[in-house]
């Protein structure tokens, strides 16, 4: 296992300071503004459309294990989708190839329906572990799309080559499709086959964006400050190496060439 060196320790401390500091500021009531993310704005639209059509929707939390950051972020989005669906009296079918995701997703969806005051609408059979491998799951999910005549598909989380196997059959059913992944190799496939795509870190920001919780928004602002620090280090590093050579004091401190 790798261990943190001094530089990494300082970077972690700085990131934690900015993120927790902004969460603290948000707790004290300071308003936070974050930019619009069209893909996430369209989620409510898609749920509304499925409800109007009287058809269910599919939520697929990716192929990553439950401890994967992308999967965790996807489960955050599932909470929002399930809550909205419950408020509108609609059905969400969750399909997965990861068995550990089943009880977590079940708990999230059940809680969402209970919070919306519609616990009777929750059906445990809608949380489906369909297959143990990605390609079998893609086929099985495509089958659910045609059998249940789903009207909206949400693909959020970590994806591998199965992304296109999931979204292309969905595209042919005419359902509105929204996807979000942190795997940049899969982003072009989602862009080509989905109506809206949430890219990279936007996926991590999704639950904060959707819940509009000030504390969560505070963490997003902290994240942006951290990125400014990373950007400043990159620029200083590039300039210092260009003008002062690869062994200049800044590079020595950062420890790039160690």
């Amino acid at each position: 296992m790798e261990h943190a060196n001094l530089q990494i320790l300082v970077a972690i401390a700085l990131f934690m300071f900015f993120i927790l500091g902004n969460i603290h500021a948000a707790r004290r009531g300071r308003a936070r503004f974050i930019r619009r993310i069209p893909g996430l704005n369209e989620i409510d639209e898609a749920i509304g459309r499925a409800t109007e059509m009287g058809r269910p929707m599919i939520f697929h939390p990716g192929v990553g294990e439950v401890q994967n950051v992308g999967t965790l972020a996807a489960l955050g989005v599932l909470g929002h989708v399930a809550r909205r669906a419950a408020q509108m009296g609609s059905r969400v079918i969750v399909t997965t190839a990861i068995p550990v995701v089943v009880p977590v997703a079940e708990d999230i969806v059940k809680q969402a329906y209970a919070q919306a005051g519609r616990p009777e609408l929750f059906n445990p059979e809608d949380i489906r572990f369909l297959a143990a491998s990605g390609d079998q799951l893609a086929l099985a999910t495509a089958n659910v799309m045609t059998q249940e005549k789903t009207a909206a598909h949400f693909f959020f989380g970590m994806y591998d080559y199965t992304s296109l196997l999931l979204t292309e059959p969905g595209q042919r059913t005419g359902a509105i499709q929204i996807a979000g992944t942190d795997q940049y190799f899969q982003v072009p496939f989602f862009i080509a086959s989905c109506d809206y795509t949430v890219i990279g870190e936007e996926l991590y920001a999704a639950s904060a964006y959707l819940t509009r919780d000030p504390i969560m928004l505070g963490s997003l602002v902290g994240q942006d400050y951290s990125k400014i620090i990373v950007l400043a280090v990159i620029l200083l590093g590039a300039f210092s190496v260009t003008f002062l050579g690869s062994q200049n004091p800044f590079v020595q401190i950062i420890g790039v060439y160690r």
Binding site: I12, F15, M16, I19, L20, I23, V69, L72, A73, L75, G76, V77, L78, G79, H80, A82, R83, I108, Q111, A112, Q115, D182, Y184, I199, G200, E201, L203, Y204, A205, S207, L210, T211, D213, I215, M216, S219, L220, G222, Q223, S226, K227, V230, L231, I234
Partner: peptide, 28 residues
């Protein structure tokens, strides 16, 4: 560029989960 954003984002998500600050799905 995407990678840097994702790495910082992953730290933020990790912190939110670690300290149970995540809302919505997990802690209403």
């Amino acid at each position: 560029g995407m990678w840097f954003g994702m790495m910082v984002g992953a730290i933020a998500v990790g912190l939110r989960f670690w300290l149970s600050l995540e809302r919505g799905a997990f802690f209403d």
